[in-house]
Design a protein around this nucleic acid. Structure first.
Lengths: 366, 366
DNA sequence: ATACAGCTTGTAAGCGCTTACATCGTGAAA
DNA sequence: TTTCACGATGTAAGCGCTTACAAGCTGTAT
């Protein structure tokens, strides 16, 4: 019956459309159910039959059709990651962690890299198509109420990375603590006028880092000058080099000039350092700088910064996802990692030992 | 019939298992074939019916089940990318290009990131599972004869990036030319003892870069000293910082000492520069350095290098794939990009204008 | 000999969709 | 009025697999 009956039964038959369980069933003189059972490691199959089926399958070069399996099993064995921008070390580290954790899981990874915030929504729509994947890993993507509702309705297993929502598993870094550590470190170096460079509009992590910064300043009675918190004039510039440059130019005009600056991201910090240099000032002599992220460049330019355990975050994201798939009703969990202060020359402190060569050994295969 | 007959037909029915075309068909008083036609933009549907079906679909929040579509259409609308290591800017750029080109195509991207060469094979197996994806993008992955055969048998649309095989579409950078340009540039600076640092085992790109280097030296009658071509002692270390460091340490013991060195990758070049500095020598005064890749760090440490148009390569890879899917019998095409020499302080030449701030504006969203 | 447990296997009904083919109107042509 | 083309829709057979249920078989307890 079916296709297998139509196909020529030569000594070495050709299967232009691919070998199916029907072909195997025919040649091994069993039913398709038995073939299926063999491939699903069903216990109630005799060793004899199992061996025969395997033999035939091997000979014909059988491969199960994953779409058919997905449909019948109601499980795609795919997970979608929505990762904005994909430009820097943060997401690279995340990806590496995810890939490593995924290796043994039987799941494959669909990557949706949103280049701009407005791309997130259509990509979310694609990723949550029915049958597309079992779950979502959302990196640095704050969710709207509507999106939250939709995700719940579709019963997706979602894990948030670098973002928070009480109803979903999440993995974050303690940004408030990081901001506090940065400012505290600068205070410890004797600075009293410490600025903060943020992004506009201010994403949640930047806001939290600012809160930590403000807390440290308040504790040391150094707060009170709101003009020391700046961002680029150009709106929506985000965490880019140019934004840091512009913000620093603004800061350099303040009187008295700040003697230290904490920047919301390393990328901006690099721009800020350029502005300082171009103004003929010294780092850390005239202005001390601390960034956030510990990108690869930072180790080479001696930028003090806060390192995030990105690899671990990516790995844990997959683990949480797999756990969620197994136990949909398991209580939601939130993991908060502590950032690590890496002191280099830009802040004038005693250099951290392990900060010398960057977070991970640099690699390349091109 | 089928499930729709079983489901409760309340005013606002709930569909715990998801809305199917059967539900829509029932409520819109048409057959499932018509519903399907509406969603596939089949011309032979009256405007009236189309509107009614769309209305009902909207109300019920219908979403097609992609696995079912894949199965029925024999098309997954997925493409797999096998990308080794995923650690550096090369692959980031590739991914960005791919994602941009993919945006409007209706295809989604499965990413298989091989961390080590031995992981390629199992990932290839997964990616080529029947029904999994329509094609493969293979980055920096030389294929074995067996793999080539298998890929052809499975009739996958494959595009090679940074790798070559006559039977598949490919996109590469002219590594020989790049090596030649690097060496030629150093020769032009007056250097006569120019070394080459490669990786062991030597991947095809490194080998090609060496060939270009050797050609330039031969042309200038500067060849003849094979001890100037070195790699790390540790085998299988690849394009990593440490490998460059070790190789440079070896080179510094040669007498007479080379005055310039071309390194197969920027990552290794950074290690090499560290070795030079630790030996108390100056760059480029005592030793000039040229790398390959133009990673982000390079702009900041002033490393002269050869830039590859990674973004364009990624974009073109998708375009070639889409073309191949459309026209399976279209003749195979090979695109070779020219690398661009970026002169910075490490080679002592006249700095290239656009090399000042790195290949792409640095970005971050964390 | 009979009944029944337990293992192995087969039958058939899905999973949700696409699509070739058949059917039914309808208006235009004859 | 009859014929026919053609547009709109329905019917049903897949796509390749999983799995509930039924059935057949063996051996053992009765």
């Amino acid at each position: 019956m079916k296709e297998s009956a139509i196909r020529p039964s030569l000594a070495i038959p050709t299967y232009p459309l691919g070998v199916t369980i029907y072909d195997i069933a025919e040649q091994a003189h069993v039913s398709i159910a038995t073939v299926s059972r063999v491939f699903n490691d069903h216990p109630r199959v005799s060793d004899d039959t199992r061996a025969r089926v395997m033999d035939v399958a091997e000979q014909l070069g059988y491969q199960p059709h994953v779409s058919a399996q997905s449909l019948a099993r109601r499980n795609s064995h795919l997970v979608s990651a929505i990762i904005p921008v994909m430009t820097n070390d943060f997401y690279m580290g995340l990806m590496r962690g995810m890939q490593d954790a995924l290796a043994q899981s039987g799941y494959d990874l669909l990557v949706y890299a949103a280049r701009r915030p407005e791309e997130v929504s259509p990509q979310l729509a694609r990723a949550t198509q029915k049958g597309r994947s079992e779950g979502l890993l959302l990196a640095s993507t704050p969710l709207t109420k509507g999106q939250v509702k939709q995700l719940k309705r579709r019963k997706q297993s979602v894990v948030l990375v670098d973002a928070f929502h009480p109803d979903f598993d999440s993995i974050t870094v303690d940004n408030v603590k990081g901001g506090y550590m940065a400012a505290r470190h600068l205070i410890d170096q004797g600075h009293e006028r410490i600025a903060y460079i943020t992004a506009a509009p201010e994403p949640p992590p930047a806001k939290q880092r600012r809160e930590g910064y403000e807390k440290a300043l308040a504790e040391a009675n150094l707060d009170g000058d709101p003009t020391l918190v700046v961002s680029s004039d150009k709106r929506a510039l985000g965490f880019v080099e140019e934004a840091g440059y512009e913000a620093m130019c603004t800061l350099l005009k303040r009187t008295p000039r700040p003697t230290a600056v904490f920047v919301a991201s390393d990328v901006q910090a690099l721009g800020a350092m350029r502005a300082v240099r171009e103004a003929g000032l010294a780092i850390p002599g005239d202005i001390a700088v601390v960034g956030f992220d510990d990108i690869q460049v930072s180790a080479y330019v001696g930028l003090s910064t806060l390192r995030q355990p990105v690899y671990e975050m990516g790995k844990l994201a997959i683990e949480k996802f797999l756990m969620r798939v197994q136990h949909p009703e398991h209580p939601v969990s939130h993991t908060v990692f502590s950032p690590q202060l890496i002191v280099r020359v830009s802040s004038g402190g005693e250099p951290t030992r392990e900060g010398s060569l960057g977070p991970n050994a640099l690699q390349s295969d091109s």
